[in-house]
Simulated scan of single mutants.
Amino acid sequence: MATVLRSQCAFARVFVGKTGRILNNSTDLGTKITQETQSVTFYPRKYSNYAHSPFVHKIKEQYEFEVVKKPPEWTYVERLLPFENIPQLKPKDKYPSGFVPQKEESINLPYFLPRNKYHDVPIYLQLSHRGQRKISEIRKIEGDIWLLNDEVKALLKTKHQKYIETRVHELTRTIEVKGDYVNDLKEWAYSKGL
């Protein structure tokens, strides 16, 4: 680094004050340097960023404002904000979206699927390998997970007339079913009252 710096300084000393024609490979070392032949080049100072340059002054803008506890326009904003808590379900005979609430008879079953905070059944589809591998997953199973596995296998085998591969994870309380059977499993869970 020091060698490079010294060579740059030596180069600068040779060409300091020379005219532009010297730098254009028309060197004439016998030329006498006079005040008229000297050219001075000013390089601008480099600042760390534009805000720190002397050309920018901090402009202080002051706005007149008034603090209001709850303005009348706030009601229009509140309508657009998401709910802090998911509201409790209002019991109806039939919901227009096709939603089926959890029934109380499901407590008597040897297994249980608790709903999530959006009141959905915890049955999901996992896609992997660019969508080529599809696995239906039942999560948050409470109770006899092996009995639930046997019932799911029997249900899908009778409906699709083929062998269904499943994998039971007792520690994570999940059952994985090879294939896309989410709709069938959700219909079965709704019919059981889960």
Rank of each mutant, 00 (worst) to 15 (best):
R13D: 05
V14F: 09
F15W: 08
V16I: 09
K18L: 02
T19F: 14
G20L: 08
I22L: 14
N24F: 12
N25C: 08
T27V: 14
T27G: 13
L29H: 02
L29K: 11
G30H: 02
G30D: 02
G30V: 01
G30C: 02
T31E: 15
T31Q: 15
K32L: 14
K32C: 05
I33T: 10
E36W: 13
T37C: 00
Q38R: 15
V40P: 01
V40A: 04
V40M: 03
T41C: 10
F42A: 13
Y43S: 09
P44H: 03
P44T: 09
R45E: 15
R45K: 15
R45S: 06
K46G: 10
K46C: 13
N49W: 01
Y50A: 07
Y50E: 14
H52V: 05
H52T: 15
H52I: 13
S53T: 12
S53I: 03
P54H: 00
F55I: 01
H57K: 15
H57Y: 01
I59G: 11
E61F: 12
Q62E: 15
Q62G: 11
E64Q: 14
E64W: 14
F65D: 13
F65H: 04
V68A: 06
K70H: 08
P72N: 03
E73R: 10
T75S: 12
Y76V: 07
V77H: 09
E78C: 06
E78G: 08
R79K: 15
L80I: 05
L80V: 05
L80Y: 07
L80H: 01
L80N: 06
L81G: 00
P82Y: 00
P82R: 06
F83W: 07
E84S: 14
E84P: 06
N85W: 09
I86E: 10
I86G: 04
I86S: 02
P87D: 08
P87T: 00
P87Q: 02
Q88H: 07
Q88S: 11
L89N: 01
L89W: 03
K90Y: 04
D93I: 05
D93M: 06
D93R: 05
K94W: 08
Y95R: 07
G98A: 02
G98V: 02
G98W: 05
F99R: 02
V100C: 03
V100M: 01
P101L: 03
Q102C: 08
Q102E: 02
K103G: 12
K103C: 06
K103Y: 07
E104G: 11
